[in-house]
Amino acid sequence: MPVGGAMAENATLFVVYNQSKALLQRLYPSPPSANPDVPTSTPIWQTATAAAVAGAAASFVLTPVELVKCKMQVSNIAAEGLAPTASAVASTHAPATTAVPPGVARPAPAPGVVAFTRSILREYGIRGLWLGQTGTLIRETGGGAAWFTTFEVLVSYFVQRRVDRGETSKANPGARVTKGDLSAVELMTAGAAAGITYNVVLFPADCIKSTIQTEDELRGKGEPKGPKRGFLQVGKDIYRARGIKGLYSGCGLTALRAAPSSALIFYIYSRLEATFG
């Protein structure tokens, strides 16, 4: 599920981001640069707006994937006889299995992706696949804006630093340095910072979303299912129980995971962009 989710998320994010940015540039063209050798830069507000639109679009792809993934992870933990708490699934990257004590028979494996999807459709209908959509929408809209904007701001900084040192483009000798001239370390540093910013900015929304998606699995066996709590109610309940720390439970580990993955994503994207345009 994480592999499929990552493929769908990044495909949607980058396609919608580039198309949205191109549309904004046509609607609000930047004034021509006084120096023909210096290309016009995209205003920050256009980058942030296009990224927010891309994040919003990606949220509708991600919610069903993350819903099934979270339910599978929590069910696997419960199948091992270790009932998790809400904080254990606050991050969508909680471990999928736990160790079985010696001498204890391993329980039957939890249902797979298809079984979980059918169960959700049978109980809640097609709308059930978008349980937790509010949290994903908030996280992806704000997080997407932070993700792309942080990357582009740092890339502009690295480009300007090379210009200030008197460097010129390697691909076009004598021309101004561009993103394509940046080193792998520079691109990956910008990408890692973007990944950390994305997670830190709106992590509470992810925490609330994961709690909503796994409420049924967190209840004890035989415990009746109550009415579904809304996004704000779950947030209030977490805050009352554990304070601000509860809303950021698992944030450090998630940010640590996001740094290398975002570094690789933006490095590969930038190299493909430089090669194919």
Rank of each mutant, 00 (worst) to 15 (best):
Y198A: 05
E66A: 13
K21P: 02
S183H: 04
V53K: 03
S183W: 05
V159I: 15
G180L: 05
D216C: 02
A51L: 15
G191C: 05
R219C: 09
T189D: 00
F203G: 01
G128L: 11
M1H: 11
Q73V: 09
G125F: 08
S91A: 14
R242W: 10
N76E: 14
N10R: 14
G143N: 09
D206K: 04
K236R: 09
Q133Y: 06
G144I: 07
V74A: 13
Y198M: 14
R257P: 00
S249L: 04
G135V: 08
L247H: 04
T85W: 08
Q25M: 15
V177A: 09
I138V: 14
T63S: 07
S91I: 12
V16P: 09
T141R: 05
R161V: 01
G166M: 10
A79N: 12
V100G: 03
T254G: 00
L67V: 03
I212R: 01
V234C: 06
A258S: 14
A205Y: 06
V16T: 14
L131C: 12
A171T: 13
Y267W: 11
L182P: 00
T275Q: 07
L82D: 04
V3A: 13
A48Y: 10
M188D: 01
W45A: 08
G5E: 10
T63A: 10
G195L: 13
K170F: 06
W45E: 01
S262K: 04
K179R: 11
T97W: 07
T136Q: 07
G246K: 03
A193K: 01
A94M: 07
P64K: 13
L82C: 10
T49I: 15
A255W: 06
V61E: 08
A50N: 08
A258K: 02
S261F: 14
E9C: 11
R162K: 08
R26I: 06
